Simulated scan of single mutants.
Amino acid sequence: MKLAIVILNWNGKQLLEQFIPSIIKYSQEADLYVADNASTDDSVTFLKTHFPKVQIVQNKINGGYAKGYNDALKHIEADVFCLLNSDIEVTPNWLIPIVQEFQLNSNTAIIQPKILDFNKKTHFEYAGAAGGFIDKYGYPFCRGRIFNSIEEDKGQYDDTTTVFWASGACFFIRKTTFESLSGFDESYFAHFEEIDLCWRAFNAGYITKYVGASTVYHVGGATLNAIHPKKTYLNFRNSLFTITKNAYGFLFGVIFIRLILDGISGLKFLIHFQFRHFLAILKAHYSFYSNVSRLLKQRRQLPKKKNYYKTTSIVWSYFVRKRYYYQLLVNVLKF
């Protein structure tokens, strides 16, 4: 099986300098590529000088995560792609369990390893943790992280299991699967595009797995209150995009409830004087309404599958029933 690790870069020389050495050291089984999103720093020159064996794919524009990978992967030959953030530290033998899972189970299409926090290595990382799920209203959550509650890694998720979505921070996918799904939706630019792709994969009958025997450490990740307003905008907008395109059943009832919940989130930002985040939610909804016609057209063209959600409302479970950790949800999950 031919494996290609592809790191998307935009003005990330410092991160490449920090993390490329461990990737090279512990990834002998794979070909290593950097897909450069039209950087204006000296990232590419740095790579050519210090890591000449790293292959470079030069994208013409910075199209974000979605278009950046769509454009780059067209030029890479492999059976499996590993889409790896530039702020990931890998560990010895991290690829072996992943490769074994792909080889042993031909129906496994997408895989995520265990993702721990680079700055607090005893704990899971916000973006992906131990594999993701989604509730009826399109709110994502993870084993090991629900909203801002992040678990310590005590070996509770050392298993291999089916999940609903895999984190884009370290995302393995068969090339045939990626191509059959036409890659990422480029209208997303960044954020939520991997959940959309995994949802489309689920609806098409593909299986996404979490492999806990493989571990990486991720620098990124933040609570909602700490992130940039642009991320708030993209997360809220792209979440609405995703549920409109992919959710099974009566869509407008789900969207109506979702709009109410988003309104409550907006009021929370307003009460805490986080006006830029409040405006970001308004902007996200305006963009959603502007794109409804296109999204409904996509919805009609895409297959749908029942039982996509793990719980009716993770918001209710977390904020009302005080179920802050995944293991407290196990007895009430529906998926």
Rank of each mutant, 00 (worst) to 15 (best):
S239D: 01
P113N: 14
K245V: 07
S27R: 09
T160Y: 02
I110C: 04
I264Y: 01
Q327A: 07
S187M: 09
G266A: 14
K25H: 03
V332F: 09
C170A: 02
Q274A: 13
R323H: 02
G12Y: 12
T232P: 02
N203I: 04
T49S: 12
R276N: 11
W94D: 02
I23S: 04
D117V: 08
M1K: 15
F278I: 02
R299C: 05
A72F: 07
N307H: 09
K231P: 03
Q301A: 05
T108W: 03
Y309E: 05
F184V: 03
V315F: 01
L295E: 12
P229G: 05
L240H: 11
I257L: 14
I146V: 01
E89M: 08
Q112T: 15
N107H: 11
F102H: 12
Y326P: 14
G63R: 11
A204H: 13
L224F: 01
E194S: 05
K114H: 09
A247T: 13
S214C: 09
I20W: 00
L279Y: 15
V54A: 02
F278Y: 14
V254W: 05
D41I: 09
A35H: 10
F133Q: 05
Y308W: 13
E101I: 12
G132I: 08
V99I: 15
V6L: 06
A280L: 08
L282W: 03
H75D: 14
F124V: 05
N70P: 10
P113K: 15
L3K: 06
Q18S: 12
I227P: 07
S293C: 06
D158A: 03
A35W: 11
L329I: 06
I7A: 04
Y289N: 15
I243Q: 08
N85P: 02
T91P: 03
A109P: 05
S214G: 04
N331F: 02
H50F: 13
S317T: 01
D135P: 00
K2A: 09
I281T: 04
A129Q: 08
I134A: 08
F81G: 03
P140S: 10
I173G: 03
S86E: 15
L32I: 15
R200D: 14
A30E: 08
E151G: 07
I255C: 11
N235K: 13
E125S: 13
L270A: 13
G220C: 13
I281E: 07
F184E: 00
